[in-house]
Amino acid sequence: MTAPTARRVEPSVEVPISVTVNGEAVEAVVPARQLLADFLREELRLTGTHVGCEQGICGACTINLDGEPVRSCIMLAAQVDGSVITTVEGLSSEGLSPLQQAFKDNHGLQCGFCTPGFLMTLSTVDPEDYPGEEGIREAISGNLCRCTGYGGILQAVRTVWNRPKDA
């Protein structure tokens, strides 16, 4: 058994974190059990990150964490110490981004509840990892939508990824 190092931090029910959210540095002490989605929504009041299932299935809570799309409902806030997060509120500083605009132009949303999750997945992944029409479907397969049947969403992605349907 090695001796405890000076850095040893005992388990605690409250955890200090430093995290960058939408470009702003945030220092907070979070309950150990607080879900990241709840931290974003209830503490930072970034309520655009929606909670649809709290079990990592529906994708509504997807955020960009250090360049990857992740589900914030199955992460603890305590786990993001030192990370950089973008939520839907941070997608565009002025007006709509091309992706958001494409959703609007192509009727890519109805109730809008799942929409932030789709936007965060699509704004985080590299389109080249998802070639072709099937790639578009694969890219969004981890986000469920119950209103649109995906038609408008697919068309929005085709538009913004410059990938005509019958090409």
Binding site: T47, H50, T87, V88, L91, Q100, F103, L109, G112, F113
Partner: peptide, 10 residues
């Protein structure tokens, strides 16, 4: 809705 500003009950 596209910018996370739609306010749902929750």
């Amino acid at each position: 809705l596209l910018s996370g500003q739609g306010t749902y009950v929750a």
